[in-house]
Amino acid sequence: MICKRTILGGLVVLSAVARAQQDDYPFASSIFDRVNPPFTFTECAAPSEMQTCWESQNYDNEYLNPLCSGLQNRVQCALTNCWNRVYSCDYQQLMVAYNTSCSDEATLSLPFFPPPADAAEVCSCNLNNVVNTFEKASSGWPRCVQKVQDENGITDDDDSGEDFPTPGCDCCYYGVVAAAMYDTCPDQNPGPIALDLVRQIYIEQNPTGNNSLEQCASRLASGNFSCTDYGFNLYGDNATDYAKPTPIHSATGNYSDINGVLKTPVSGATYTFTGWNTTYTITAASVEAVATRSASATKVSGSITGSVTGTAIGGPSTGAAAPTMSAAALIGLSGLAFALL
Results as ranks from 00 to 15, higher is better:
Leu14Ala: 08
Gly302Phe: 06
Gly236Arg: 05
Thr305Asn: 09
Ala45Thr: 07
Asp159Leu: 15
Leu127Trp: 02
Leu11Ser: 15
Val130Gln: 04
Phe225Thr: 06
Ser56Pro: 03
Thr80Gln: 07
Met181Thr: 00
Thr6Met: 12
Ala329Lys: 00
Thr278Trp: 03
Ala106Met: 05
Asn65Met: 08
Gln21Gly: 11
Tyr242Val: 02
Gln92Asp: 07
Ser294Thr: 15
Thr278Ser: 07
Val131Tyr: 05
Glu135Val: 10
Ala328Leu: 11
Ala243His: 01
Glu151Arg: 09
Thr228Asp: 15
Thr298Phe: 03
Tyr255Val: 13
Cys123Gln: 04
Val145Thr: 12
Val12Met: 12
Val266Met: 01
Asn277Ala: 10
Gly191Tyr: 05
Cys53Met: 01
Thr42Val: 03
Arg85Val: 01
Ala178Ser: 03
Asp150Tyr: 13
Asn259His: 15
Phe225Lys: 02
Leu220Asn: 00
Ser30Cys: 02
Ala106Asn: 08
Ile248Asn: 07
Thr298Trp: 03
Leu262Trp: 02
Leu234Cys: 06
Phe41Ile: 09
Leu341Asn: 12
Asn73Lys: 14
Leu64Trp: 12
Ala28Leu: 05
Gly70Leu: 03
Phe338Gly: 02
Ser222Gln: 11
Ala322Thr: 15
Ala327His: 05
Ala239Phe: 03
Thr240Ala: 12
Thr42His: 08
Ser48His: 12
Ala120Ser: 14
Trp83Thr: 04
Lys147Val: 10
Ser212Ala: 05
Ala312Tyr: 07
Ser212Gln: 07
Glu204Met: 13
